[in-house]
């Protein structure tokens, strides 16, 4: 499988602030790639550089093997882009705006009307006849998706497409992105991890201007080596007895609950041993819980623990 996008050693500095410190990742064709990071991690800067809207200080970006250049990059003819806060000409109607986009993107004249109606229907704006001026942010986001997909781009880049939407709107956008996967490669940035788990094949975690983790979703899930488990002791004595035997237990601070122990990143074998110890000694507990690790746990662990300058490569993506 060839790469739709390849980013190598991307560095960008704004004044004294180094926003990107050598970002490298690749997006294989026909995949949905989640670009995860906290606000200010450098996601938008990376995306704008891929679009030739910002000039990198160092590094090379290729889109379908073609090098991206700052300014009028030719690679943009293969790209559809949805900005984080899409702004349009508010004196136009949706159809007028999409017609402008279709003409600029070179959609053949005979196909324009049909494509525009198809896109408006897909994003739920087919009945909208008013000018863009009165549109809500969610409506603008949907129009943004329509304009980004209008010319059937080979690579669709979306900057936090779901962050401003209500649950219904989010579902619609995620469904649209997943549907788009058939004909295009999708790169979308987000800090909503459940969105990544829902539709992505691959993901990369960007933290402090560096990729700290990247791989397929399976690889990322496998990376979640161990889960937390919680044991709720019936009294202080029971809790201390357990903690004395299993030093990995730490007291968990959970609102409204006392004497709860947490074992971070424990294996199933650890959990089994704890349970059999409790059974053998007849230690009174209120409950024991095995908490399946989520992508959020993984995200928190890598962004908290990975020291600067360290990249955790799950596999060669």
């Amino acid at each position: 499988m060839s790469n739709a996008l390849q980013v190598e050693g991307l560095k960008k500095r704004f004044g004294t602030k180094e926003v990107l410190k050598g970002v490298s990742f690749s997006v294989p064709e026909n995949s949905v790639f989640g670009f995860i990071g906290q606000n200010g991690a450098g996601k938008t800067t990376t995306m704008k550089t891929i679009l030739g809207l910002l000039q990198q200080d160092e590094g090379v970006i290729t889109v379908f093997g073609e090098k991206v250049t700052y300014g009028n990059t030719k690679t943009n003819r293969m790209v559809g882009y949805l900005p984080d806060v899409p702004e349009f000409y508010d004196y136009m109607t949706t159809r007028e705006y999409l017609r402008l986009c279709a003409e600029i993107a070179g959609v053949p004249a005979g196909e324009r009307k049909e494509r525009i109606e198809e896109m408006l229907k897909m994003v739920g704006l087919a009945d909208e006849k008013h000018r863009i001026k009165g549109f809500s942010r969610g409506m603008k986001q949907r129009l943004g998706i329509a304009q980004a997909l209008l010319h059937k781009p080979k690579l669709l880049i979306c900057d936090e497409p779901t962050s401003a939407l209500d649950p219904t709107g989010r579902k619609e956008i995620l469904d649209a992105l997943q549907a788009a996967k058939v004909q295009t490669t999708v790169l979308f940035s987000t800090h909503i991890l459940s969105d990544v788990e829902r539709i992505c094949d691959r993901a990369a975690i960007l933290h402090n201007g560096e990729i700290v983790l990247t791989g397929t979703m399976e690889e990322l899930h496998a990376r979640k080596n161990g889960n937390d488990f919680l044991v709720s002791a019936s009294g202080r004595g029971e809790m201390e007895a357990l903690q004395a035997h299993f030093p990995k237990f730490e007291e968990a601070e959970i609102v409204g609950q006392e004497n709860v122990l947490r074992w971070r990143k424990g294996s199933r074998e650890d959990f089994r041993q704890v349970l059999s110890y409790i059974a053998d000694r007849d230690i009174a507990i209120r409950g024991a819980e095995w908490a399946e690790a989520t992508l959020e746990d993984l995200f928190l662990s890598v962004t908290k623990e990975t020291p600067s300058g360290t990249e955790t490569e799950v596999s060669g993506v």
Binding site: N76, V79, Y81, P83, C101
Partner: peptide, 16 residues
Amino acid sequence: QKHTLIPLVTKGLSRT
């Protein structure tokens, strides 16, 4: 300021 040119430039509209 409104970034309205970005969707058009990323569709291939030249700055010229």
